[in-house]
Structure formats: C-alpha cells, structure tokens
Design a binder for these strands. Structure first.
Length: 136
DNA sequence: GCCAACGTTGGC
DNA sequence: GCCAACGTTGGC
C-alpha cells in the first residue's frame, strides 16, 4: 500500500466537499510530475489531503478507490489523469506546514522541497510520523 | 534550441 | 502585496 499527499485550495475544492460527496473524481491536475505520480496510484492507497492558502495544513485522509484513468476534463489530445477518492476521516489535529517543517524526520517531504507540486508520494515512515502528529 | 517575458502557485 | 519557484509561450 502506498501513501500520497494531494494539495487543494479549499476555496475551490475542500476536504469538506469530498466528505459531503463521499466519493469523488480527483481531476484537474495539470502538471507532468504530479500526473506521473498519479499514474502509480492503486486502489486502497491512502491519501493525505492538504489545504493550501490560509490553512496550510493536512486536514484529512482519503482512499484511492479506482485505477488512474484519463481525465474526462482534459482538452482534446492532452493526456491527463484522474482518480476516484473516497473520504475517510478528518484528522483529529490538523498538521500545519510549520510543524512539518520543524520535524527532523520530514525534511525530505516534497511538500517542503517543491512547494508547487500538488500530488506527491509519502513514505510509510513519513506517513506514520504524520499520523502520530495528527493524533497526539 | 535558447532565452526573455509572462502567468500561476503558494508561502510569507 | 510581494516574492520565489517553476512552467509555458513566443521571438529569434
């Protein structure tokens, strides 16, 4: 099982929107590196959801429930990917960007190293650390 | 193929 | 509101 982190601007699409729908299509990713990561997603993978902008924090978990498929909103001739996510949980404690930056074991997170990337992999030990921070 | 100009993202 | 990072566009 793999862990991922996806970023979203809550003003345009928030974790709450996903929670209300239960399941939804995660589309609109228009960055090649992010697309290449999406291609490696598998059903059952867990996804940390990050709110950019004012919150700058991990706010919840979702689960990948489909294979990656061609983004239905992609323009003609363009190959982008989408995946279906199901809402899992709101994190008991939001894990803020500042806290992530302050954690020695999270310095390799692409969230820090590449601030504009919107889909990225998380190692299982990083996931463990983040989940501890979210539950303590 | 290079590079300047410009647009977008996202943190500060 | 500003700026850094980075992608895209278009002239040459």
């Amino acid at each position: 099982m793999n862990y991922w982190l996806v970023k979203t601007e809550p003003e345009s699409y928030s974790l709450g929107d996903l929670e209300r729908k239960g399941e939804d299509c995660w589309d609109g990713v228009r960055n090649h590196q992010a697309r290449n990561f999406m291609a490696k997603m598998n059903p059952g993978d867990l996804v940390f959801v990050y709110h950019s902008g004012k919150q700058k924090a991990l706010v919840g978990m979702a689960k990948v429930i489909s294979e990656p498929y061609s983004d239905p909103k992609a323009e003609e001739g363009e190959k982008w990917l989408a995946v279906d996510l199901r809402f899992e949980t709101n994190l008991p404690k939001h894990v803020g960007l500042a806290a992530i930056k302050a954690a020695d074991s999270l310095q390799d997170l692409l969230l820090i190293r590449q601030s504009r990337l919107s889909v990225m992999p998380i190692t299982s030990s990083e996931a463990e650390t983040l989940l501890k921070m979210a539950n303590s």
